[in-house]
Simulated scan of single mutants.
Amino acid sequence: MKFICNTRELSTACNNVIRAVSTKVTIPTIEGILIECGSNTLSLTGYDFEFGINTIMNVDVVEPGAIVINAKVLCDIIRKLNNDEVTIETNGTSVSIISGAAQYNITGIDADDYPELPSVNNGKRIELEQSIIYSMINQTVFAVADTESSKPVYTGLKFVIENGMLTMVGVDGYRLAIRKESIGYDGEDIEFVVPKKTIKEIVKLFNLEDDKKISILISKRHIVFEIDNYSIISRLLDGEFIDYQAAIPKVSSTTILINTNDAIDCIERTLPVIENNQKNPIRCLFDGDQMRVSTVSSLGRVVDYTHANTSGDRVEIGFNSKFMLDALHASDTDEVKIELGGPVSPAVIKPINSDSFIFLVLPMRLKNEN
C-alpha cells in the first residue's frame, strides 16, 4: 500500500476517528485505526465493538492496500509533521511515514485481524436538518444519566418518531427533558435509544454553517449517522424506558412566569456557599411578584430575590441548584413558565406559549433553616 495526501486533512481525519478507538480493552487491533486505500480514496476506521467512526477522503493512491496502525502513535506522528504532504507506504506490516525531512518506520497490524463493522443495510432511513437535531440534543442530553447506577437504558437519549414528529427524551431519575420538533417524516413509527457517548460524538462532527442534512439509518440493534464524509455507527440500548408522558403532572396549584436569565442569575449567586449540591439544596419561595432563593451551608448563608409573576398558591420548595440551572440554561426562550403542584411535586419548566420543550426537576427535602 502507498498513498500521498495532505497532512492537515489526514491529521483532522485521524483526530476525529481516534475518538472511536478503544481505551478500555487492551486488544492491539482495536487500539488502532484501520487504513484502507482504494482507487484514489482513503478510508479510516476506528471501532471499539460498540461505537465506530469511518471517514473517506480523496488522496493520491500509488498502490491500494490496507493496514492497522496504533491510533495514538499515528495521530501523534501526523500532528507533529510540518510539511504539507505526507507519504505512507507499507511492506507487509512495516509502515513508512515520510513528510519533508521526517521519516518514521513503525510496525502495523494485518488488516485482516480488524473486526468487521455491523451491517445496517436494511435499516429505516430518515434525514434531518443539522441545526434542528443540534438544538434538540442540546435541550435534552443534559438530563441523560452519566452512569448505569439506575438503569442502563437511561444512559441513552430516546428518539420517538411518529406522526411527522420527532421527540427526544433524556432522564436520569432526578430530572426529565423532552423536546419535540416537526420533521415532515411520513414513514412508519420508530423509537430507539442512542447511547450518550454516541450523541456527544456526533455533535462534534456537526458543521452548523453548512445546510446539508444528516442522514440516519436505523436497524433493530444499530444506528448509523452520516454527516458529511463521516459515518458513525453505534449499538442501540435495550430496556424498558420510562413512560415519560405519564411522568408529566397533569395539574398544578402554582404557576410562575419568570425571565430565564433573571432566574439563572439569582440561582448562580447562591453557588459560592454551596459545598455539595446533594446536601445543600436551594430554597425557592414563590410568592406574589418575586422568587426568593436562599441556601445555607457550613460556608455561610445567602438570600437573593428576583422578579416573578406568581399565580396560585404560595409555595416553598427545595431543588438541586445544578439541576435547575441545567434546565434553565437549556431553555431557548427569554421567559419560561414554571408549574408546581406543591413542595413535594416535580417542577415543570416549559415555554410560555408552546410545548416544544418540557423539563421536569424533582424537588429536594428541605430542613428548617434554624
Rank of each mutant, 00 (worst) to 15 (best):
residue 86 V to Y: 04
residue 107 T to H: 03
residue 248 I to G: 06
residue 105 N to Y: 02
residue 168 M to I: 12
residue 219 S to Y: 00
residue 346 P to G: 06
residue 227 I to V: 15
residue 78 I to C: 08
residue 144 V to Y: 00
residue 173 G to C: 07
residue 278 Q to G: 03
residue 14 C to W: 07
residue 244 Y to M: 06
residue 247 A to L: 13
residue 285 L to V: 14
residue 150 S to L: 15
residue 208 L to Q: 07
residue 103 Q to V: 01
residue 337 K to L: 02
residue 345 S to Y: 09
residue 27 I to G: 01
residue 243 D to G: 09
residue 111 A to Q: 02
residue 14 C to R: 05
residue 106 I to S: 00
residue 325 L to P: 04
residue 110 D to Q: 01
residue 229 N to H: 14
residue 127 E to F: 02
residue 335 E to V: 08
residue 141 V to S: 12
residue 62 V to I: 14
residue 52 G to M: 08
residue 79 R to S: 15
residue 194 V to K: 04
residue 128 L to Q: 02
residue 363 P to Q: 05
residue 64 P to A: 10
residue 75 C to D: 12
residue 203 V to K: 14
residue 100 G to K: 08
residue 365 R to E: 03
residue 276 N to P: 05
residue 254 T to H: 11
residue 72 K to N: 01
residue 34 L to A: 09
residue 208 L to V: 05
residue 237 L to H: 08
residue 233 I to R: 01
residue 115 P to C: 11
residue 176 L to S: 01
residue 41 T to H: 13
residue 41 T to R: 13
residue 145 A to K: 03
residue 201 E to Y: 11
residue 344 V to A: 13
residue 306 T to S: 09
residue 227 I to D: 08
residue 235 R to Q: 03
residue 328 L to K: 01
residue 76 D to E: 15
residue 306 T to E: 06
residue 96 S to N: 00
residue 130 Q to C: 02
residue 315 V to P: 06
residue 184 G to D: 03
residue 50 E to Q: 13
residue 284 C to F: 01
residue 71 A to W: 09
residue 267 I to N: 04
residue 313 D to T: 11
residue 239 G to C: 03
residue 123 G to I: 04
residue 362 L to R: 11
residue 330 A to T: 08
residue 216 I to K: 04
residue 124 K to N: 05
residue 67 I to H: 01
residue 206 F to D: 02
residue 290 Q to N: 13
residue 345 S to H: 11
residue 189 D to H: 08
residue 191 E to A: 07
residue 11 S to V: 05
residue 355 D to C: 04
residue 282 I to N: 03
residue 80 K to Y: 05
residue 18 I to Y: 07
residue 369 E to V: 15
residue 271 L to C: 07
residue 55 T to F: 02
residue 321 S to G: 06
residue 354 S to L: 03
residue 126 I to N: 03
residue 284 C to Y: 00
residue 367 K to T: 09
residue 66 A to S: 15
residue 181 E to P: 04
residue 338 I to A: 10
residue 355 D to E: 15
residue 120 V to I: 15
residue 211 D to R: 12
residue 171 V to M: 03
residue 232 I to K: 08
residue 125 R to N: 03
residue 265 D to Q: 15
residue 289 D to M: 11
residue 189 D to K: 15
residue 296 V to N: 11
residue 264 I to Y: 10
residue 175 R to E: 00
residue 317 I to C: 11
residue 109 I to M: 15
residue 30 I to A: 05
residue 293 V to Q: 05
residue 138 N to S: 05
residue 10 L to R: 07
residue 241 F to R: 04
residue 361 V to Y: 01
residue 177 A to Y: 04
residue 351 P to S: 10
